[in-house]
Nucleic acid binder design. Structure first.
Lengths: 139, 139
DNA sequence: TTAGGTGCAAACGGTTTGCAGGCCT
DNA sequence: AGGCCTGCAAACCGTTTGCACCTAA
């Protein structure tokens, strides 16, 4: 918590109830769109504006306290960084979201670095596709 | 070409100059946003509307003639399916787009199927990260 | 002939921005 | 006191939709 305040201050910014609340909301919610974060924060800070949520999500992401990934084709979802890093599997048919340990793709990360000179950002990675059960149902 | 017309007709749709032009534009451009496709098509079909481009991209994707991926955080980009399947690496710093052969991640595809019961859609996959050169420049 | 397709303009949803205060430090 | 932050409302941008006309089959 003081750790949080330190990071904020060291970056020349200020601590506000809104900022603190946005971070807590993201941590509490797991995966949430800016809109959902806004709704969650509004429970304790009634008048908070959506733009403040957007501005704070941006700041928190710059400070590495929060991350976002594109889970639907529409809105991004933000999640805590305090949890372990992971990437997402999204089923296009049933919408299921699965979190996967980065270890599964470690060999690919190495390959991309070696063969393509590219360092992937696994925390942002989202893989679309189908659950086995949904894939069968489709055909 | 007749192959294209057949697919269209078999799905109970009609062939129009706009539709044909949109497909050709996507094939010609490689990776393009709806807006870029519109600009390209407008070179030969001056009055074409943006909504017609959107509607046709959707139809062409349904018919499997075109695919899209999310290369920027903003607009999707469409590409031909006639080329070999591939996925994308995007450098957040310099914006470079690299196409990668699916073979590189074949082992992961197998692992996801086995361990998570999930069949990834590789053609839609986009991996964000940094070029090695950009990663060095950043620190 | 008739249903699908088109252009136009308006609506939409998510996000950003300009501005006049407000409050952290 | 000074400057970052906030709320509000309007602007933005990509995309979708309703409608009347057109045209492929």
């Amino acid at each position: 918590m003081t750790d949080f305040a330190d990071k904020i201050h060291r970056s020349g910014r200020r601590m506000t109830p809104q900022r603190q609340s946005v971070l807590q909301a993201v941590n509490r919610l797991g995966h949430a769109t800016p809109d959902a974060v806004h709704a969650e924060v509004a429970k304790e800070l009634e008048g908070i504006s959506l733009s403040t949520v957007y501005r704070n999500l941006e700041v928190l992401e710059q400070l590495g306290l929060v991350r976002h990934a594109h889970i639907s084709d529409r809105a991004p979802t933000y999640h805590s960084v305090s949890g372990h890093e992971h990437f997402h599997l999204i089923c296009r048919r049933c919408g299921r979201v699965d979190s996967v340990d980065p270890e599964v793709i470690a060999p690919v990360v190495t390959a991309l670095e070696g063969e393509h000179g590219f360092v992937p950002d696994i925390g942002h990675l989202t893989v679309f596709g189908h659950c086995i059960s949904c894939a069968e149902a489709d055909s």
